[in-house]
Simulated assay, not measured.
Amino acid sequence: MKNLTVNDDFLLLEGLKVTTQSSTPAFILLLLIYIFIMVSNVGLVVLIFGSRNLRQPMYMLFCNLIINDVFGATIIIPHVLRDIFISQSDRHIHYIDCVLQAFCVHFYGSTSHTVLMIMAFDRYVAICNPLRYASIMTNRMVLKLSVAAWGSALVMVAILLGLTIRLSRCRRIIPNLFCDNASLFSLSCESVLINNIYGLAYTVLLLGSSIGSVTLTYLKIAAVCMRSKNKALNRKALQTCASHLAVYVLLLVSAFIIVVLHRFPQLSNYRKLAAILGEVLLPALNAVIYGLQIKEIRQRITGDIQMYCSKRSIKYKNREDKKYLKIVSD
Rank of each mutant, 00 (worst) to 15 (best):
L44Q: 05
M58E: 02
M137E: 02
L16G: 01
K315V: 01
V249K: 03
D8T: 10
S254N: 12
N195P: 03
V155F: 10
D83C: 01
D9A: 10
I327R: 13
I37A: 05
V142Y: 00
G43M: 01
M1P: 04
I211Q: 04
L233Y: 10
A201G: 05
A158H: 08
S89H: 11
A275C: 13
G109P: 00
Y270Q: 11
N286F: 03
L261G: 13
L44P: 00
L206C: 12
V157Y: 09
L207E: 12
N68M: 05
I35Q: 07
G162S: 10
S268Y: 12
V259F: 09
L267V: 14
S112R: 02
S243C: 11
G162V: 11
E279R: 02
I289Q: 11
Q306M: 11
L131V: 11
I77M: 00
Y270V: 10
C309M: 14
L273Q: 04
L30T: 03
A182Y: 13
R169G: 04
V147I: 13
G291F: 05
Q88Y: 11
K272L: 05
N53H: 05
K311H: 13
K311D: 13
A275M: 13
L13C: 05
Y270D: 09
I127S: 01
L205Y: 14
K220I: 11
N176S: 13
L282G: 01
R132K: 11
K272N: 13
L325K: 10
L47H: 00
S191G: 06
A102W: 07
D304P: 03
S210G: 15
L187R: 08
K322Y: 10
I96N: 08
A158E: 09
F103V: 13
A255H: 09
L177D: 01
K231P: 00
A153V: 02
I173T: 06
Q239M: 09
F27C: 04
V253S: 15
A242I: 04
L29V: 11
L187S: 03
I127K: 00
T164A: 13
F178Y: 12
P283H: 07
L252M: 11
Q239L: 12
H92Q: 12
Y248K: 02
H106D: 14
A26Y: 06
A275H: 03
H106A: 13
K315E: 14
M1W: 07
M156S: 11
L31C: 08
T20P: 06
L292W: 09
L100D: 06
I35F: 07
L245C: 12
I66T: 00
D9I: 03
I96G: 09
Y324A: 15
L245R: 04
P283K: 04
F103A: 07
N269F: 06
